[in-house]
Amino acid sequence: MLGLAQRAGKLISGTETILDELKRKRVKAVIMANDIQDNTAEKVNLATKKDNIPLITAFSAAEISHAIGKKRKVLGLTDVGFAKTLIKRVNEGV
């Protein structure tokens, strides 16, 4: 799903980019590695809670990096459809 979103241009990556785009209300869901540094996790958590943005922490940094072919720990989905589909799949355990 993340690879599809990336190819469609609906995925952004990098902590600072995500935080900036959250302020601009462009991010519909955030995927954060469950093995990320505590201070980064805290920044992302606060930013997502502020605007009630779904935060997915079901994947490791290695899994996220493998899915998109780049070394990343924080991703943002900018499309509602991709966000809803990913959240549904994570909740179902797919």
Rank of each mutant, 00 (worst) to 15 (best):
L2V: 02
L4K: 13
R7W: 08
L11W: 01
L11K: 01
I12R: 03
I12S: 09
I12M: 08
G14H: 04
T15I: 07
T15L: 12
T15H: 03
T17M: 10
I18P: 03
D20L: 09
L22I: 11
L22V: 05
L22N: 04
R24M: 12
R24D: 14
K25P: 03
K25M: 07
K28V: 06
A29C: 05
A29T: 02
N34Q: 11
N34V: 00
N34E: 07
D35Q: 00
I36A: 11
Q37K: 09
Q37V: 03
Q37T: 11
Q37P: 06
N39S: 12
T40G: 10
V44R: 13
L46D: 11
L46Q: 11
A47E: 02
K49W: 08
K49H: 12
K50G: 06
I53H: 04
I56N: 03
T57Y: 01
A58S: 12
F59E: 07
S60Y: 05
A61M: 15
A61C: 12
E63W: 02
I64K: 07
S65G: 08
H66D: 15
I68R: 09
K70E: 14
K70F: 05
K71P: 10
R72H: 08
K73C: 14
V74K: 04
L75G: 05
L75F: 01
L77E: 04
T78V: 15
T78F: 06
K84D: 14
L86C: 08
I87V: 13
I87W: 01
K88I: 10
N91P: 04
N91D: 11
E92D: 13
G93Q: 04
V94K: 13
